[in-house]
C-alpha cells in the first residue's frame, strides 16, 4: 500500500512546529501503524535525514506509551485500541494521513510527536495511592468484596494512562483519567477509606496543571482504548462533592 503522510515536526519544546509531508510506499496491509512509521524512519535515516520522534514501548496495547492523533482521532480510526494495535488495513490505499501529537497545555511537546505526560504522574502523586495501614498480606479471598464491585474496580483499573481522553476532550480535561484512578480505589475496601480526600487532592492537582473542566461531552469514553465509562466520572464527582461539603 501507498500513503501520503502529513506529520507534525518540532525540534524541541521551545521551537516552532510545522507540518512536513512524506510519502511511504510498499507497505503491507498487515503492518501496524507504528511499524509503518519505523519504515518511514528507516527511509529517512538512509537518506541522511532526521527521523520522526514518536512514543512507543510494549507494542501490545497495554503500556499506554503510544499516542498520536491520527486523522482527527486519538489512536486513529478504530475502536478500543491503542495506536500500536492499529493496522494499515484500516486505511485506503493512497490515503492522506495527518499525524499530530496530543494537544494540551498540560502535555507540552518534547519533540515531533512526543509529548511530556508527566502531568499524569503528578496527579497520581497528589492522591492516587492508599496510605492507610492495611496490615500484613492476608490469605487470598479473605476480604469479602462483591463481584460487581470487583468488576467495576477492575474496569476502572484498565486505564493505561495514555492520555487519549485529554487529547480528545474539547476542553482538554483529564477527568476520565482521574475518575478511573479514583473509582478503581474507591470500590475496594483498602482504597475506600480515603476516597473523598483522594478525589479532592487529585482534582485540585488536575486544575493546577492546566487541564480543562469536564462538560460531559462523552468524547473521552468514545476514544478511550480501554473503553472506560464516564460513569466513573459521576463517582469522582460524588466523592469530590462529599469531600468539599465536609470542609
Amino acid at each position: 500500500m501507498k500513503f501520503k503522510l502529513k506529520i507534525w515536526r518540532q525540534k524541541n519544546a521551545k521551537a516552532k512546529g510545522y507540518f512536513e509531508d512524506f510519502d511511504v510506499d510498499n507497505i503491507s496491509p498487515d503492518t501496524s501503524f507504528l511499524e509503518m512509521l519505523d519504515i518511514l524512519n528507516n527511509n529517512l535515516i538512509s537518506a541522511g535525514k532526521e527521523p520522526v520522534a514518536f512514543d512507543h514501548d510494549c507494542r501490545e496495547g497495554i503500556c499506554g506509551m503510544c499516542s498520536l492523533y491520527i486523522n482527527g482521532r486519538a489512536h486513529g480510526p478504530d475502536e478500543d485500541i491503542t495506536t500500536c494495535q492499529l493496522h494499515m488495513r484500516k486505511f485506503k490505499d493512497g490515503d492522506l494521513i495527518t499525524v499530530e501529537p496530543w494537544r494540551s497545555a498540560a502535555f507540552p511537546v518534547v519533540k515531533d510527536l512526543v509529548v511530556n505526560r508527566n502531568a499524569f504522574d503528578q496527579i497520581l502523586q497528589a492522591g492516587g495511592f492508599v496510605s492507610v495501614n492495611t496490615g500484613g498480606v492476608p490469605d487470598g479471598n479473605t476480604i469479602p468484596i462483591s463481584k460487581l464491585d470487583a468488576d467495576e474496580a477492575m474496569d476502572a483499573s484498565a486505564c493505561i494512562g495514555c492520555g487519549a481522553c485529554v487529547a480528545t476532550c474539547k476542553n482538554g480535561s483529564a477527568m476520565l483519567f482521574v475518575a478511573a484512578r479514583v473509582s478503581a480505589l474507591a470500590k475496594l475496601p483498602q482504597g475506600k477509606v480515603e476516597a473523598q480526600q483522594r478525589a479532592k487532592a487529585m482534582v485540585a492537582k488536575m486544575d493546577e496543571l492546566g487541564f480543562g473542566s469536564c462538560t460531559n461531552t462523552q468524547a473521552c469514553q468514545a476514544e478511550c482504548p480501554k473503553g472506560i465509562s464516564i460513569a466513573h466520572i459521576a463517582r469522582l464527582n460524588r466523592e469530590f462533592l462529599c469531600a468539599k461539603l465536609k470542609d
Binding site: K6, G17, F19, Y69, N71, G72, R73, P77, T98, E100, R103, S104, A105, A106, K170, N171, G172, S173, G210, F211, G212, S213, T215
Partner: peptide
C-alpha cells in the same frame, strides 16, 4: 477551557 489547548488540531474528526 479555552486555555487548556493553546495549539489546536489541524484535523478534527
Amino acid at each position: 477551557n479555552q486555555t487548556a489547548r493553546p495549539v489546536k488540531y489541524l484535523v478534527v474528526n
